[in-house]
Design a binder for these strands. Sequence first.
DNA 1: AACCGATCCAACCGCGTTTCA
DNA 2: ATGAAACGCGGTTGGATCGGT
Length: 277
Amino acid sequence: MGRTPCCEKKGLKKGPWAPEEDEILVNYIKQHGHGSWRSLPKLAGLLRCGKSCRLRWTNYLRPDIKRGPFTIEEEKLVIQLHGILGNRWVAIAAQLPRRTDNEIKNLWNTHLRKRLLCMGIDPQTHKPFPPCGGPILAAPSSPATRHMAQWESARLEAEARLSKESLQPNSPDYFLRLWNSEVGESFRKLNNEHSTACRSSISQTSSSTKCGSVSAVTVDACPNAAGSSTPASNRIDETEEQIDSSDSCCSEDSSDTALQLLLDFPINNDMSFLENC
DNA sequence: AACCGATCCAACCGCGTTTCA
DNA sequence: ATGAAACGCGGTTGGATCGGT
């Protein structure tokens, strides 16, 4: 389909916006709404293309935008949602009130991606890197990464199953709905409670527990970024054994498994590497 | 103080999707 | 039903800033 470039006309300004231009755009939209973006610049008296105006408004000038650094909670949420939704920045942004997709995309590309790499996790698949190019998931470097991989695997199974059953199967949306549903709500709540409980249990015992794996992630996984194996990669705790046994139960309903993993996922602890890595 | 590489982020670009005549 | 126009999204770029030497 042939289409004309949006900034075909010569004389249209590009590059950074001047404060005066911002003011004109804001004033115009406040008075008239944006209407047709294509015709807005002409009506507002701006030497910009409509696309540029739309971008400036949605990413910067909109009054309901929260600016400034992301909180740890927001970063955790972005990572979790990215695991579910992939690079669907708009969908992810919809779960973070007052943050823009562009901002989240930048956050991901500049910070979070690198942190996952640092942990030895592939930021695209959210799976641990295979050691020296070996098969994926052969030996996850930590309970945290292993758990993520289990979750991803179950997610894909459930996705396939839902597709089969024609249950409105764009599964990322299914999981998004799940995330937003009462189930998701209780999941988040449960994890908060769980992590609180774990924190206290960690203070009581230094043995390897589901929650105690955090230090292993931050200390052991980072040198593993290139995919080389470390002693940590052999460490399997009781929790993982439990996961293994539930996961190996092939006849189990996949979406139930996914839900169980969702409910099991110790977010608040395993994501706390964000504070250190 | 000057240079240089790394990092960050606002803005641009291209393409798929939706809308409408 | 068709195709052009408009919109919206994700990937990428380039200039500003920062930190190290």
